[in-house]
């Protein structure tokens, strides 16, 4: 085999590996190419960069980066929805919510799960990536006991577990940002690169906010979050049927043209239809006296 023929072979292999998106093959190919002197180091870097760029998805966002994305998403939501400064209610929300999160398939995030009430009558809640969960008091008021509130919080934990927020970031933006990060990783970012990354960051936050506030997730993602919720309720020991009874109450208050969940979620009726086979029948509202007092005390200010 002449050097020319071999060179063609290496390039074919590289093209193939780039097509199938296999980074390791690309890397070995470029190492071989460099070793034989067919391609220069610079060309190899460039090819590796292209191969790597093909592979970027939400799964390439590290938990640490997810944490900073989540903080920005939460701060942006709080611009429109003011927090409810009710320490007793927020403490209770965190006792319940963090207990539920421990039973999820993703109990550990970079910064942990934290819950906050929003002073809004909308039937609405927002799960920022990484576990910052914001719940409107309007949604809490659809819950008549602790089991039903647990169903609401566990649904939001489901969105964090499934990284639905991160999936809302446009793929082209993600690829471009993560490629910049990868290429520049060997040294500290210059201020121009920080600006560039911040622009991608801000765009990503907008993508997520648009999905959370305006367009909503795909229906399948909502049904899946309901299924995760039922799973968590069962693991902890709450009534899985509380998901159905909560949705029934939500349905009574449902305004299909209203703000919040009406815009971003399937109707409660559709959700009940999907979740009932795993959740079982609606839970009895009066079935757990030991939680009644603390639920009532925490909700007294709402």
């Amino acid at each position: 085999m002449t050097r020319h023929e071999f060179g063609r072979g290496v390039l074919c292999a590289l093209a193939l590996s780039a097509l199938i998106g296999c980074g390791t093959v690309t890397k070995i190919g470029t190492q071989i190419g460099q070793g034989s002197g067919v391609i220069t180091e610079q060309q190899a870097t460039s090819i590796n960069k292209t191969g790597a760029a093909l592979e970027k998805t939400f799964a390439d966002i590290t938990p640490e980066q997810e944490y900073y994305i989540g903080r920005a998403v939460a701060a942006t939501i709080l611009e429109t929805y003011p927090p409810l400064d009710d320490p007793a209610a927020n403490d209770y929300l965190n006792e319940l919510g963090q207990t539920l999160a421990m039973a999820s398939d993703r109990p550990e995030t970079f910064g942990g799960y934290h819950f906050l009430l929003l002073d809004s009558d909308q039937i609405n809640a927002f799960a920022a990536p990484g576990g910052l969960i914001l719940v409107c008091k309007g949604l809490v008021s659809c819950c008549r006991n602790e089991d039903e509130l647990a169903a609401v919080l566990a649904h939001e934990i489901g969105h964090v577990q499934d990284k639905d927020g991160l999936k809302a970031i446009k793929k082209s933006r993600l690829t471009s940002a993560l490629t910049t990060i990868g290429v520049e990783a060997g040294r500290n970012l210059g201020s121009a690169k920080v600006k560039d990354l911040t622009e991608q960051f801000a765009g990503g936050i907008q993508d997520i906010i648009h999905t959370l506030v305006t367009s909503g997730y795909a229906r399948g993602q909502e049904y899946q979050a309901d299924a995760v919720s039922v799973e968590i309720l069962g693991r902890v020991g709450y009534h899985t049927g509380a998901m159905v009874s909560m949705l029934e109450e939500m349905n009574r208050r449902w305004d299909p043209h209203g703000p919040g969940f009406a815009r971003t979620h399937p109707s409660p009726r559709d959700r009940i239809e999907h979740v009932a086979p795993v959740a079982g029948p609606a839970a009895d509202r009066q079935s757990r006296p030991a939680t009644r007092d603390r639920f009532a005390a925490a909700m007294s200010g709402i």
Partner: peptide, 17 residues
């Protein structure tokens, strides 16, 4: 490669925030 490494403090970090 990036599939083997996670670079702490790189990318969306406190500096970008």
């Amino acid at each position: 490669s990036g599939s083997e490494l996670a670079l702490a403090g790189k990318g969306f970090n406190d500096e970008v925030e």
